[in-house]
Amino acid sequence: MLIRLQQISKTYRVGEIDIPALRAIDLEIARGEFLAIMGASGSGKSTLLNLLGCLDRPTGGTYELDGQEISRLSGDALAHIRNRKIGFVFQNFNLLTRTTALENVELPLYYGPWLSTSAKQKKATELLVRLGLGDRLHHHPSQLSGGQQQRVAIARALVNEPPLILADEPTGNLDSRSGDEIMALFHELNAAGITLIMVTHEPDIAGHAHRIIHMKDGAVL
């Protein structure tokens, strides 16, 4: 198992009111799976994904990632795990503006083990070429289409060769053709052994996954 969640809960406290965003979730995800999470707005999909991505800590339960119990780790240790084991893909791409595609992809390398400038460039270039953006290395995000921007973001997620990619509505801002291209890419990555977890509203996008889980009011159905 790559991921094992036991009785995971997350409660936000806003003023005097407790908002339970996740309630006692048990979930296991095997290495190499391609999983889609669906559910109504506010059902807790993003909250779950952020916990899986070590961006947040649960208020209860245990989370084991790659054999390591991580729900009580320090902030620095979580940052380390995010850098080495997890790649994020966002709905709005989250590329740095006024920064080239190449530099965007290099970004995670700055927080990993030391690499020379040329080694960083080489790695990022190879990845972008593999994703069909070899002629867009020095373009800024504003000079790229949505689909291209999302591919740059995926290259950034892959650059540290993580075993796990988390995507929160990766096709939410894309037309259906670009969405299909991204899905084709996800299949490729999954075939190469990467575990993929994707949140989506669209049934046909979710249909690309091997397993679909549904959420409602902070619980997995």
Partner: peptide, 16 residues
């Protein structure tokens, strides 16, 4: 702010 959030997501520690 978003840049900072992104840097953290890709592995920047607070001290970075």
């Amino acid at each position: 702010t978003r840049e900072i959030g992104l840097r953290m997501a890709v592995g920047a520690r607070r001290r970075d």
